[in-house]
Every structure is written in structure tokens, then in C-alpha cells.
Computed example of a mutant assay.
Amino acid sequence: MSQETVYAIASGKGGVGKTTTTVNLGTALAQAGKRVAIVDADLGMANLAGFVSLSPGATTLHDVLAGDASIDDATYRLAENIVAVPSGTDLDDYAETSPEGLRDVVSELRSSFDYVFLDVGAGVSHETVLPLGLADAVLLVSTPEPAAVHDSKKTLELTDRSGGEIAGLVITRTRPDSDVSYEEIAARLDVPLLGTIPDDPSARESVYAGTPLVVYEPDGPAAVAYRRLAADLSGIDVPDRPPSGRDTTGDGGSRAADGSSGGADASVIDRTPDEGSEGREAAQDDVSSAITEAETDP
């Protein structure tokens, strides 16, 4: 699968770890020296903003899809080699977007980055289906719970209807003492099992810390599994831990030390925050909490 560079991370059910998977796969590949962009393609229920500490008036993918900004304007540096394109959380802005514009966004990012990960919304809507057909391949994410597996079948059908290709299944929150056969779940869905991500309390802690799990607890079972998955997808060696002396903290600080934010080429483009945004930056704990709730089953 090394020739595939744009992946849609999708699920039929919310709260299965889709955003966590997106962020950690991207970070692991960035640590390996690849240039990575992660995109919040969940236009209606965005939750990636917490990883970049957006100020209320910051430019997002909503502005790009409304024709009011360029993709560079909505691109924020997370750490070395990795940027994020978050969607907004304002429903009025969402109403102004044209999801079809995502096609041009993906095309532009594909030409600028080694890997692009699209964090796709759950459910059935036009903006959910569109990324499935734009990506080179779709990573289906599910927990072992029957409801999540059942809803995964809907995503498989949507991917087929959109002309997309399924790369395989990633099962999160697995337990070594479980009597569930994860291979059997994949066989039931008729897709390859790409990997399993063990249930790990550090995953929730890492979200509250605003730090990707592969950086926050690099030797933990889930972090090890995410690095293995990244290596299998890309066909490259992924380091066991963050390279020392590099900016791989992923601390949610989309702002550089001088208060600027990185664009598509973070080593070259620095942008000054919008006038009047100083002091209005989103509280990281509040947004990270919202992400945690979104990524946790009721």
C-alpha cells in the first residue's frame, strides 16, 4: 500500500477513536521524516480544532470551502513535518460551505505532502460520502462492540457507492483477555484486518494533554500498535520514539514561539494571528475534553 498517499479514516459509528487514529498515524509518519497533513473532513461536527488551539476567529476549512480563504490560510503547524487543516465549529459558517470544494483541497494537499489523512465524519451525508471517493484508500475504524461493527457495514456500502477502495479494518480498544476474535470480525466484514489498537488509559490522558499518544506515552501498547500500523501502511521504518531534540511534542501549539502559525510549508510560511484574536485563543483543556467525549462511547 506504499503507493497510496491519501487515506480517509472512516467509521460507521462515532466515538470509536477515529480522530485519535488520524492524529497518531500522522504523527508517527511525521516522526519518520514524512510530510503529513491531517484534515478534519467532518464538516458538521468538527473536533480536530482542539489539537491546534484555534482562536474563535481563526481561518478553517469552512472558510476555504466557502471560497473566502486559501488552503494555506487554514493550515496550521502541529509539530515538525505535520500540519492540520481543521474545520470550524460555527453552524452558520458550516451552512456557507460547499463540500464539493473538498476535491480541490485534497488535490492541492496531495501535491504538497507525502501523506494526507482525512478524518471523515460518521453517519450518512454528502460530506461523509465525498471523502471516501476522493481518497486513495479508506481505513475503516471500529471497536469490537457489535453496534460499531454493524455500523461499519454501512461505511463499506457507502465506500463502494462512492467508488472508493477499502484498505482494511483497524479495531480499537481491544483487550488481550477478550474472547472476541478480531480476525473473525474482519472476515465477517470481508475486509483485511490491518491492525488492532489495545485499550490504553494513556489515550484519554494524551488527549487532555493535547499531545499525540505516540509522543505522550511512546512505549505504551496503543502507541506501539499505532507505529506498527503506520509502518505497515507506508512500507517505511517508523522510529520507536520521538527523535530527540526535535519539535515533536504536538502540544496543541499551532502557534510558533513568536505567536505565528505555520502554513502548508511550516518551515517557510509563518502567519500572524488575526488582529484582535490575542487573548481569545481556545482553552486547550476545554476543547480536548470535547474531543475526549466525542471519542468515547456513551
Rank of each mutant, 00 (worst) to 15 (best):
A122C: 04
E108R: 11
D93P: 00
S87D: 01
I71L: 12
S162E: 05
D93G: 04
V141D: 15
A203N: 01
S162M: 13
D160G: 11
S125R: 14
H126P: 01
A137K: 12
P131W: 13
V120Q: 09
D200C: 03
I185W: 05
P198H: 02
P198E: 04
V149M: 04
N81Q: 07
R77P: 02
A137S: 15
A79Q: 14
E184A: 13
S98Q: 13
I197H: 05
S152A: 15
E157M: 06
V149E: 09
L140A: 02
A74Q: 12
T75E: 10
G121N: 03
D200M: 07
A135R: 14
G121D: 08
S162F: 06
L118S: 05
T128A: 10
D72R: 08
D199Q: 09
V138R: 09
D200P: 04
R77D: 12
R77Y: 03
G67I: 02
R161N: 12
S202G: 03
P86S: 11
R175L: 07
H126F: 12
K153D: 00
T89A: 13
G88E: 09
D90S: 11
G101W: 03
H150M: 11
E165N: 13
E80V: 04
D119L: 12
V191I: 14
S142M: 02
L189N: 03
S98L: 07
Y94S: 08
E157Q: 10
S152W: 14
G168I: 14
V141R: 00
P201H: 10
G101L: 08
S98P: 00
G168H: 15
D200A: 03
D92Q: 05
G101F: 03
E108A: 12
I171Y: 10
V106N: 05
V141W: 04
P176F: 06
A84Y: 05
S181T: 09
G67C: 13
V105Y: 06
H150A: 13
A167E: 10
T143L: 05
R110A: 11
A84W: 05
D160C: 01
S202H: 14
G133C: 10
R173H: 13
L130Q: 07
L140D: 01
Y115I: 04
A95K: 03
F117C: 02
T155S: 14
E108L: 10
P192W: 08
E145H: 15
A69I: 15
L139A: 09
D190T: 06
P201D: 14
S112H: 06
L78N: 02
S125D: 12
S178G: 03
P99C: 03
E183S: 08
P131I: 15
S125N: 10
V170T: 01
I185R: 05
E184K: 14
D119S: 07
E100I: 06
P144F: 03
L194Y: 09
S125L: 06
A69G: 05
P146M: 12
